[in-house]
């Protein structure tokens, strides 16, 4: 992995992400927010994106597994010939907001939706993000037909 973190985790950064999404959406709108996540997905995570463009989704899967585990998230991975499904049953970011008594707005999930959309752009993959309930969502990666 291009970025690997160890040691303690400062989970209050999820509060800052929440505040940031709220600020950007209300001040600059959805396109500006998408550009932020596009730059993050394609430029900050350049290695993941480069691999996706080359048809390799393993670095993205490894990234998800590592960071959801590091923050004690709960998830299941299923893989078959057609798709890979990363099913989050307890999102650590959502859990942290709830522990801090911060209401989880629908817009908080835009970070998952927009990152995945940006990771799909110009690659052989489609990543569909389906929000199921609070802290529960499914990210399904398929090859484009």
């Amino acid at each position: 992995m291009r970025y690997v973190d160890t040691g303690e985790v400062h989970k209050d950064f999820h509060l800052a992400t929440n505040e940031t999404i709220d600020f950007v959406l209300s001040e600059y709108g959805e396109d500006f927010l998408y550009e932020l996540f596009r730059r993050t997905a394609q430029e900050v995570y350049r290695d993941i994106y480069k691999n996706l463009k080359a048809g390799n989704f393993k670095p993205l899967l490894e990234h998800w597994e590592y960071y959801y585990s590091r923050e004690n998230g709960k998830y299941e991975i299923t893989e078959d010939d057609e798709k890979v499904c990363f099913y989050v049953t307890d999102c650590p970011a959502v859990r942290h907001l709830k522990e801090k008594n911060i209401p989880v707005k629908k817009s908080f999930y835009l970070q998952m939706i927009m990152l995945n959309k940006a990771w799909s752009e110009g690659t052989p993959f489609l990543i569909d993000t389906k929000i199921i309930s609070e802290g529960e969502y499914r990210m399904t990666l398929r090859r484009r037909i």
Partner: peptide
Amino acid sequence: MIPSDHFVRMYNEL
């Protein structure tokens, strides 16, 4: 999810 460890890199882009 933006991992807590990576927030600052997104922050930097903003």
